[in-house]
């Protein structure tokens, strides 16, 4: 079967959702031109003004999307890089996320935000961050973080059927990664995927780091250590049962992500694991993430910044030693 890519799956999901649901809109910078990565390629030709190109006004773009959603549409707002979501957090956190609650349930804001994280492109500290943990601290937002093409398309389809705001955090380093094509199908929000079963150590990894964890697991298997790799796919609402169930079998847990370790999603997972499975743990939960530093441009420095398979393998070895 032909290959597909993560960005291709996103494009397919957008086109499919727009054909199925006349309420779907796309709003963002350069979206009519397909965007820098091609996520919206060809959509303006098929859907005309339902694909709305905007000026570089992120603060208001997010609010326009929320205002469309409050009036019954299903907009997909594209914030090209999550670094720029800083400009739009007021509308996301103060308006979209709270509209349902503050109105006592009168309103629904089915806003979908697509944005991308990811270092490794030598693009510097303002085009490379992984800020997804910020979003988890705002009640009212679902946050999904696909690691595969099938999930990138499938979670987006589910987001476009949700009643409340969903932020789809993509990884631009995965955009052109080839995968065997699978039929586009909704992937439920709030369901983790066990990427590889294993009896010895549970590794919870997100986004691109899932692939690093799988590479580490391959290597460790050669030494007889079996790592269970869990990809939460949705950071909120989190599929805690899958994670805790795994830890209760393996008794050891490593959490790994690309974002800065301090205050990251891994800290939340580590806390939850010790709350729910402290008695099952044979060792402290290990946490891997970026150092407390902005993302540097210099190739050796940026390479050292990212969590790669050898670091995950070393963490696993230290737990089973």
């Amino acid at each position: 079967m032909a290959d597909t890519t993560y960005i291709g799956a996103i494009n397919d999901a957008l086109a499919s959702a727009m054909r199925r649901d006349p309420a779907v809109r796309i709003v963002g910078e350069d979206v009519a031109e397909g965007g820098p990565f091609g996520a919206t390629k060809g959509l303006a030709a098929e859907f005309g003004e339902r694909v709305r190109d905007t000026p570089i006004s992120e603060s208001s773009i997010m609010g326009i999307g929320a205002g469309m959603a409050l009036a019954g549409l299903r907009p997909v707002v594209e914030i090209m890089f999550i670094d720029f979501i800083t400009l739009a957090l007021d509308q996301l956190a103060n308006q979209a996320a709270k509209a349902r609650y503050m109105s006592g349930g009168q309103l629904r804001c089915p806003l979908v935000v697509r944005t991308s994280v990811g270092a490794g492109t030598r693009s510097g500290a303002q085009h490379s961050q992984s800020l997804e943990a910020w979003l988890l601290h705002v009640p009212g937002l679902s946050v999904v973080m696909p690691a595969t093409a099938a999930d990138a398309g499938g979670l987006l389809l589910s987001a476009l059927r949700a009643d409340d705001p969903v932020v789809v955090v993509e990884n631009k380093e995965l955009y052109f990664r080839k995968e065997p094509r699978v039929d586009l199908a909704p992937v439920p929000i709030g369901a983790a995927a066990v990427r590889r079963p294993g009896r010895d150590v549970t590794c919870v990894a997100t986004s691109r780091t899932v692939h690093e964890a799988l590479a580490a697991a391959d290597e460790l298997a050669r030494d007889g250590t079996e790592v269970e790799v869990i990809d939460p796919r949705t950071l909120h609402p989190l599929d805690l049962d899958t994670i805790v169930g795994s830890v209760r079998r393996t008794h050891r847990c490593v959490v790994a992500h690309e974002a800065v370790r301090q205050g990251g999603f891994g800290a939340e997972v580590a806390a939850l694991v010790q709350e729910h499975a402290f008695d099952a743990l044979d060792a402290p939960v290990a946490r891997l993430g970026a150092p407390y530093a902005p993302v540097p441009v210099s190739p050796p420095l940026e390479d050292a910044y990212l969590v790669r398979a050898p670091a995950i393998a070393a963490a696993v070895r230290s737990l089973v030693a």
């Binding site: 205002g67 409050l70 009036a71 509308q91 309103l107």
Partner: peptide, 24 residues
């Protein structure tokens, strides 16, 4: 559809709603 404690925050909401109303 909304009022806000963040000054100016409902201006983009109204614009988005206006765009939706024009079609719906």
């Amino acid at each position: 559809l909304g009022a806000t404690g963040v000054v100016g925050g409902t201006i983009p909401l109204a614009l988005g709603t206006a765009l939706a109303l024009r079609e719906t």
